[in-house]
């Protein structure tokens, strides 16, 4: 679905007169592969390069060196620009700043309009998309009257209406409250499971990453860690070095292990922990 090969991205810094004064390397030699239908999480603190990476997947930025292929299309080929943007949709962080329409349904129709989809087909797509994210009953409402989580679901619908194969979500939950966050993640998972859309979720919240097929951790423009959620979160100390959270249950397991209990690293759920502890207790009694 997505293939990144030795990607380098430099931002050009400018002095007060606007002349180039140097460069900042935001992405430093990153290679990764995403297969169709995967749910990928990219973690990393602010400034780690994860947002820059996201913008490459949608051809909003172009490689300084290396290359990005989206569904086989090279982002360096300008003639494929619109095909890439249609194949890989993008949901951004701030819900207010990505809704263009003043009515929910008009906003969802914006993408298909730009693609030149015929009128009746637009209506079909808008209806389908809004139903998928559970916002159909709000189709006549003004986006300003919706909560943050609802706005983000409208934004997701706006992307689905373009019939993408892949959706990149750049911290879609950072500005939401817990219930809004849960709704957005639920919608993303549903798209992945039911519509088989590849999801690339960029986030700070590790609980959103636990359910991913694969987790990439970015630091300083490079991929610092990658693997299944269990493989990544079991490296508690490395994660803490990178200033990232691990689930508290994983952390608790790690602490107990350090205190001498025989607990495996990488416990991800409360049930796992309770099972392990039960077994230990039995062992103690015998």
């Amino acid at each position: 679905m997505i293939k990144i090969s030795k990607l380098i991205h430099d931002y050009i810094q400018r002095d007060e007169e606007g002349n180039p004064s140097g460069t900042i390397r935001a992405i430093d030699d990153v290679s990764l592969d995403v297969s169709p239908g995967q749910f990928i999480a990219i973690l990393g603190h602010n400034g780690s390069g994860k947002s820059t990476l996201a913008k490459h997947l949608n051809a909003l930025l172009f490689p300084t060196e290396g290359a990005v292929w989206v569904n086989g299309m090279d982002s360096r080929d300008q003639s494929l620009l619109w095909d890439i943007r249609q194949t890989a949709g993008m949901v951004f962080q701030n819900p207010d700043n990505q809704i263009i329409g003043q009515v929910v349904e008009e906003d969802v129709g914006f993408g298909p309009e730009n693609m030149g989809v015929p009128t009746e087909k637009i209506w079909q797509r808008v209806e389908e998309s809004l139903k998928t994210v559970g916002m159909y009953e709000y189709r006549k409402k003004s986006p300003n009257r919706l909560s943050g989580g609802q706005k983000q679901r409208v934004s997701i619908a706006g992307v689905i209406a373009m019939h993408p194969k892949c959706i990149i979500m750049d911290e879609p939950t950072a500005m939401l409250d817990p219930s809004g966050r849960a709704d957005v993640i639920k919608a993303a998972r549903k798209l992945n499971l039911e519509e088989n859309i590849t999801i690339i979720l960029i986030t700070h919240y590790m609980e959103e990453a636990i359910q991913a097929d694969r987790v990439f951790v970015m630091d300083n423009g490079k991929i610092a860690m990658q693997g299944s959620p269990r493989e990544v979160f079991s490296q508690v100390e490395r994660m803490q070095e990178l200033h990232l959270d691990v689930p508290q249950v994983t952390l608790l397991g790690h602490l107990l292990r350090k205190k001498g209990l025989e607990i495996p690293e990488g416990i991800l759920t409360r049930e796992e922990l309770s099972d392990v502890l039960k077994k230990l207790k039995k062992g103690n009694r015998q």
């Binding site: 508290q248 409360r270 502890l277």
Partner: peptide, 15 residues
């Protein structure tokens, strides 16, 4: 807090 849930799960499982 997450930790409250963890401890309650442990307690419910008989610990």
């Amino acid at each position: 807090p997450q930790i409250t849930y963890i401890m309650n799960t442990l307690r419910e499982s008989g610990m």
